[in-house]
């Protein structure tokens, strides 16, 4: 029952037409709170892409070879969240050992990612849409890059808007949500290009 979709098309579709945050509302909390600062946004985007790719691949393997054969699918939420937390923890330790420069730029964001709904969301989408392993890989990389591009764009726009005279009630959160809405409309323009469910 694997859907017949070319992996390259799936990659582009998950970046542009089905952007994980702009059309599926995933990972909004950190998207709004971190995008105040361009540099942190870049770090968080990189970290999300990294963790997303690795943990979705591991979840795929566990789902296919452990949960399904033993009929334990009802445990999947707990298993997925543990896998994500473990990947984040191990990655943090590995990066700390291997590269201190990377650790300084990524380190503080890693713990935040455990509760980022984008990761769990992609895992659940992968399960529902029945992708095979290669498709899962490209889908998760694409979703990560899509999130990254979106947060960079939002951070850049917010920096400009800081000096603009915004009505008092709309400051900060309100105007940010309107920007996100406009960005989502812009990304909807891509939907004529490719269409993957």
């Amino acid at each position: 029952m694997t859907p017949n979709i070319n992996v390259v098309i799936l990659l582009f579709a998950s970046i542009f037409t089905g952007n994980i945050v702009l059309s599926y509302f995933l990972g909004l909390c950190s998207f709004i709170s971190i995008s105040k600062d361009l540099k942190s946004s870049n770090g968080l985007g990189l970290a999300v892409t990294f963790v997303l790719t690795i943990s979705v691949a591991i979840c795929y393997v566990i789902l296919k070879y452990i949960l399904k054969p033993f009929d334990l699918e009802y445990l999947r939420f707990i298993v997925f969240i543990i896998v994500i937390a473990a990947v984040v923890q191990i990655l943090e330790m590995l990066i700390e050992r291997m590269s201190s420069a990377l650790y300084i730029s990524l380190g503080i964001f890693l713990p935040l990612i455990t509760v980022n709904c984008a990761i769990l969301g992609v895992v659940l989408f992968m399960e529902i849409r029945k992708y095979d392993f290669l498709q899962t890989l490209f889908f998760s990389i694409g979703s990560g890059i899509g999130w990254w591009i979106a947060i960079l764009a939002l951070a850049a726009i917010r920096r400009k808007i800081e000096n603009a005279p915004v009505p008092a009630g709309l400051k900060d959160a309100g105007i940010t949500l309107i920007i996100i809405g406009l960005m989502a409309m812009a990304f909807m323009g891509f939907s004529g290009m490719l269409s993957v469910q």
């Binding site: 059309s23 009630g169 709309l170 959160a173 989502a184």
Partner: peptide, 21 residues
């Protein structure tokens, strides 16, 4: 589609904040 949800919640926040101000 998705954008309307963002606009609606922004407007909601605007109204709520104006009242509390």
């Amino acid at each position: 589609t998705a954008p309307s949800a963002f606009f609606m919640i922004a407007v909601y926040i605007w109204i709520a904040k104006s009242i509390s101000f």
